[in-house]
């Protein structure tokens, strides 16, 4: 066989504990990418992660770095405190759409508007995953959830909140992108976006934000392959795009 050799390298930043996530869930992929980026940028020894409330609150089982747990929705405020106290730390939050954009929207927007030198990763799977698939701010119109059994009715619940599009308007935000991880090419793009979102704080440019459209097969009531495909549908409401970056990047 010719061509470049494939080699499996396990990122040192990850622990060897198997992920507890459901089959077909995208958290595992994003965790892996995050670990690779932390390693590439040599951040293991100065990383400070904020684990939020949701399926990924167990972040600390999988990452061999310093991690603090924040109350539901307050990850960006806790991250602000840590970064302001010790600016040498590389501070990031890992949140879901409910945590970042519902209960914590104010803390999220205000941290972004202040241009906090932190990196926020929002996993957007359009439902509350851990509590069993309830309506979230990013649920699509017509989408069935356990609390909208007939589908999200815009007359009752309005329309999905497009967080990346909001943050893109803030001068304090240095990097803002929405990515997906449902194809090999998108996985590589997502990795690149995470890297830039960390560079935004490392180069003292401002707030870094990456929104990841993610599959939640169990709560979407789909098999993993169909859920993976359904992410393509989400991109019609939530376009994949680099919304904001800095010159010369």
């Amino acid at each position: 066989m010719s061509g470049p050799k494939m080699k499996f390298v396990f990122p040192r930043v990850l622990t060897e504990r198997p992920f507890h996530y459901c089959p077909g869930c995208h958290h595992g992929i994003v965790h892996r990418l995050l670990a690779e980026v932390l390693e590439e940028l040599e951040l293991r020894e100065r990383a400070y992660g904020v684990a939020s409330i949701g399926c990924a609150c167990f972040l600390y089982y999988y990452f061999d770095i310093d991690i603090c747990e924040a109350p539901h929705g307050r990850a960006c405020a806790a991250a602000t405190g840590a970064k302001r106290a010790r600016p040498e730390l590389a501070v990031f939050t890992y949140q879901g759409d409910g945590d970042f954009a519902a209960i914590g929207l104010n803390e999220s927007l205000q941290a972004a508007a202040r241009g906090e030198r932190i990196t926020a990763i929002m996993i957007n799977n359009t439902v509350y995953g851990m509590t069993g698939g309830q309506l979230s701010p990013t649920t699509l119109p017509g989408q069935r959830t356990t609390t909208t059994p007939e589908g999200r009715d815009p007359r009752m619940y309005g329309y999905p909140l497009k967080v990346a599009e909001i943050l893109a308007q803030f001068p304090g935000v240095a990097y803002c992108a929405r990515v997906a991880v449902n194809s090999p090419r998108r996985v590589l793009e997502a990795r690149q976006a995470l890297r830039q979102a960390f560079l935004a704080q490392l180069e003292d440019r401002g707030f870094g934000y990456v929104e990841v459209l993610s599959a939640c097969p169990v709560n979407w009531k789909l098999d993993p392959v169909s859920a993976n495909k359904k992410v393509d549908e989400l991109t019609q409401t939530f376009p994949l795009k680099i919304f904001r970056t800095w010159e010369g990047l």
Partner: peptide
């Protein structure tokens, strides 16, 4: 010194800072 957007944010900034 940082003026927060609410007491809720202030106390969570405190949590973050104290954790370091």
């Amino acid at each position: 010194f940082l003026q927060a957007e609410s007491e809720l944010a202030a106390v969570n900034m405190l949590l973050g800072a104290a954790s370091t």
